[in-house]
């Protein structure tokens, strides 16, 4: 457990990037009428084989295999938080097919950590791999927010050559 859910997201997003993902899609939905918070992190990284996935789920954070490195502890911590807050945790992964992690929790649960600084999490992920497309899809009631770190980037380079100043500025903003 981290004291902010955004740290869980950062941790898992970092794993996505470490797994070679070029797209990391983070979805956060605050559903007040249903008293649910949903967090999903989906990537197109190399994914996990059945054994690794089983270890992550069943053995949690096994510290075996020589080095005392908490492999998979991040997922284990999010799972614990999710289950502690009356939610569910799911992970889907296959080699070459990326990984998807979904954690829900009861929004009003007293032990539910605050979301925390989601901006800083997205910023950090963008900084770690500037070529990857880090996306945030946030929804709370009627409010929606979408962000993609590559938005405009693919179209901009061509325009950059035509109108240099403008293109460069747009590149920075992205």
């Amino acid at each position: 457990m981290f004291d902010q859910l955004s740290l869980n997201i950062l941790d898992i997003g970092m794993n996505s990037l470490a797994a070679g993902a070029t797209v990391v899609r983070i979805t956060v939905i605050e559903d007040v009428p249903h008293d649910q918070l949903l967090i999903r992190i989906r990537d197109n990284g190399r994914g996990m084989d059945e054994k690794t996935l089983r270890d992550v789920l069943a053995k949690n954070a096994s510290t075996k295999a020589g080095r005392k490195k908490p492999i998979g502890l991040g997922l284990a911590l999010l799972r614990q938080t999710s289950e502690m807050c009356d939610g569910a945790f799911r992970i889907q992964s296959a080699p070459g097919k990326g990984t998807g992690v979904t954690a829900s929790m009861r929004l009003s649960h007293v032990d539910r950590p605050p979301l925390g600084d989601l901006n800083a999490t997205i910023f950090a992920l963008c900084a770690v791999n500037q070529d990857a497309d880090v996306q945030l899809h946030y929804r709370s009631g009627d409010q929606k927010f979408h962000f993609s770190s590559q938005e405009g980037k693919h179209n901009e380079p061509r325009r950059t050559q035509e109108t240099q100043g403008k293109g460069a500025a747009a590149g920075c903003a992205a």
Partner: peptide, 13 residues
């Protein structure tokens, strides 16, 4: 009392 307690304790000796 979650099993993660054991993982964390083992990691930190």
């Amino acid at each position: 009392t979650h099993r993660n307690v054991v993982s964390v304790a083992a990691t930190k000796d």
